[in-house]
Write a protein that binds this DNA or RNA. Structure first.
Length: 592
RNA sequence: GCCUUGGUAGCUCAGUUGGAUAGAGCAACGGUUUUCUAAACCGUGGGUCAGGGGUUCGAAUCCCUUCCAGGGUACCA
């Protein structure tokens, strides 16, 4: 039992003894004491006043006296307005550090026996990834890692949108204007090559629309009658019919895209346990529709289309199958959800998808619940805000995107340039340098994207480079490298017994902060929010740097117990920074 | 129109189940290196928490309302 729990229990007992009242545990409100006051733990006494029927100050004083007398490590108290500040013995904190934080198991949470699927990335295979996808990928990866750290068994899944009219557009444009261009012949990354033809299609399509409009057609008619779009639709039908020529082209071009994506994924450091392809799943869901019709959850309109009425739930009527029997988006998703569950029988399933699809997922989950799927309550849409440019939304077709590969390359180049200016890598080999630049550039990018709460939209200004100072990835990486260097120079060994020493105020603050690591992991996992972890790690790094500057050189410390203790503190800090950053998908260097 | 998510310092963001005088970073200004990595540390300035109303001992946080911005809105995904 930790000190907080002791205090809560004792406070309940105190209220019973002093006021003969039973106070519910949730009325006892503990918080960290603000640094300008004496003490470490504060009880907010206002809720207790209802039970004591005395003024906040009187209540606080009586509680304070009781706690000092009855709780072992509470050594003193002071009252400021309605706040009871408790001083906890230094020996308690030192003991907490030596016994718990220093143990190799610290921070690792036991498996909870639950299985969770995280679906993320889920790209279209007609264009390369851009900054919006980068946010998705980093978020998905780190949430998956976060859940692992919180004791879940995690399955990372990528549902690739590899079919449909948009894919046919690239294919058609390549067929018509490509002159047999390949990634090899043009030295263009496969996904970029395919994306190039997607843009060409759009350009030519627009030209045709303009031409048809000058011939007297309306915009809508022109969009429908353009020979180009008709041909693309024909191609989609051929694809569905299994036309071998179309299928071959499709396989070839998708193959290029996958090669390209693999490079980007590798650079981003994300991975998947299982790929699903929509070309295999797009026909799913019709069974589910039948099921819904049978048990009356769905109904059929006279034209034969199938619907669900969600107006009682404050939503609309929603089409789940077209009159001609073909699927819509949600049909597939119903079927795919069932298939995923059948494959893995997971307790939870998380969809990392942008907030533009909030409504879709609300409907999807509600339908599955109405169909009586026991696993529907485990479904969760991890919705995140769009990444916007100062000019507004990114649009692939119009080329107003920040390309993922370009951005990564720029970040690494910036890292290189900044590192060279500092001149600390002269004794690095070329390979070590390259690895370091990669680590720092990606660390800056990932931290920049992950430190923001997922649901908030994110503004990215390409003209302002991402910082490498202050609340950034490189700052935390630097702190880690600095500690590693310190441990080396100090001849650190974990074998030495935990020393009994006097601790400074900053050390005490550090111990309190470090001790929160496990609960920070759990809280971040429950909120599906790497951002809270990122901000915590920044606090830890900042705290270490403060400590490092305050304390005389540890390496030269003559009191061996003090030296050992400070190295211990440094070491625990380093390992929290390392494992925490790894959860964010960021690696930390040994030196930089 | 309706539904939904945001609005906190010049900029980018934190802010726990409502708790003390709303915090960081960047940018600006000043200081710190014969001492373990200055991508660091210390300090100064900077706020109508979008506006208004309400609940409460106490509101950035909860409720109502207005404004602004993003997203969605029945056969795109």
């Amino acid at each position: 039992m930790n000190i907080e729990q002791h205090i809560v229990t004792a406070t309940i007992a105190a209220v019973k003894q002093l006021y003969d009242q039973d106070i519910p545990e949730n009325q006892i409100n503990l918080q960290d004491t603000r640094s300008e006051f004496e003490g470490q733990i504060t009880i907010v006494v206002f809720p207790v006043v209802r039970f004591s029927k005395k003024s906040p100050e009187a209540t606080a004083n009586e509680l304070g006296e009781y706690l000092v007398a009855n709780v072992q490590d509470v050594t003193a108290f002071n009252v400021i307005k309605g706040f009871l500040n408790l001083t906890i013995a230094d020996s308690y904190w030192l003991n907490l550090f030596n016994k718990e934080l220093l143990s190799p198991q610290f921070g690792s949470i036991k498996p909870n026996g639950q299985k969770v699927m995280v679906e993320y990335s889920s790209p279209n295979t007609n264009k390369p990834l851009h900054l919006g996808h980068v946010r998705n990928n980093l978020l998905g990866y780190s949430v998956a890692e976060l859940l692992k750290a919180d004791g879940y068994e995690v399955i990372k899944v990528n549902l690739v949108n590899d079919r449909g009219i948009h894919i046919c557009k690239s294919m058609l444009a390549w067929q018509r204007w490509g002159n047999g261009e390949t990634p090899e012949s043009s030295f263009l990354k496969g996904d970029h090559l395919v994306g190039k033809y997607y843009v060409i299609f759009d350009k030519e399509y627009k030209k045709e629309i303009d031409r048809l409009k000058t011939e007297g057609q309306t915009e809508e008619e022109a969009k429908k009658n353009s020979p180009l779009i008709i041909e693309a639709q024909k191609m989609l039908q051929d694809w569905e019919a299994g036309d071998s020529e179309v299928i071959d082209l499709w396989k070839k071009m998708n193959g290029w895209v996958y090669e390209g994506f693999d490079v980007t994924y590798k650079n981003l450091g994300v991975d998947f346990d299982k790929y699903y392809y929509e070309s295999n799943t797009y026909l799913l869901g019709k069974d589910t529709v039948d099921e819904g019709l049978e048990n009356g959850v769905f109904f059929k309109k006279p034209d034969g289309s199938v619907w669900i009425d969600l107006t009682a739930d404050g939503l609309d009527q929603k089409l789940v199958l077209r009159a001609d029997g073909t699927s819509v988006y949600i049909t597939q998703d119903l079927g795919t959800a069932q298939m995923k569950y059948d494959d893995f029988k997971m307790d939870q399933s998380i969809y990392v998808v942008g907030n533009e699809q909030d409504y879709h997922f609300k409907v999807l989950f509600l339908i599955l619940e109405k169909l009586g799927k026991s696993w529907a309550k485990g479904l969760h849409h991890l919705s995140y805000g769009m990444v916007d440019l100062p000019s507004g939304k990114m649009k692939s077709r119009e080329g107003t995107v920040v390309d993922a590969d370009d951005l990564i390359a720029e970040m690494v180049a910036t890292a290189k340039q900044k590192t060279e200016v500092l001149g600390k890598v002269n004794n690095f080999s070329e390979e070590e340098k390259e690895a370091l630049y990669n680590q720092i550039g990606l660390g800056a990018l990932k931290y920049f994207l992950l430190k923001v709460e997922p649901k908030k939209r994110l503004l990215f200004d390409p003209s302002e480079s991402i910082d490498f100072q202050g609340n950034t990835g490189p700052f935390i990486q630097y702190t880690h490298a600095r500690i590693k260097s310190l441990l080396n120079k100090g001849g650190y060994s974990t074998e030495v017994n935990a020393p009994e020493v006097a601790i400074t105020a900053t050390e005490l603050e550090m111990i309190m902060l470090l001790s929160k690591y496990p609960s920070e992991i759990s809280a971040a996992a429950k909120a599906y929010s790497p951002a809270t972890l990122a901000n915590y790690l920044y606090e830890v790094a900042k705290m270490f740097n403060k400590f490092y500057h305050e304390v005389p050189p540890i390496v030269k410390e003559e009191d061996s117990a003090v030296k050992q203790h400070r190295l211990n503190l440094s070491s625990v800090t380093a390992s929290i920074l390392k494992t925490g950053m790894n959860i964010l998908g960021i690696t930390v260097p040994e030196r930089m």
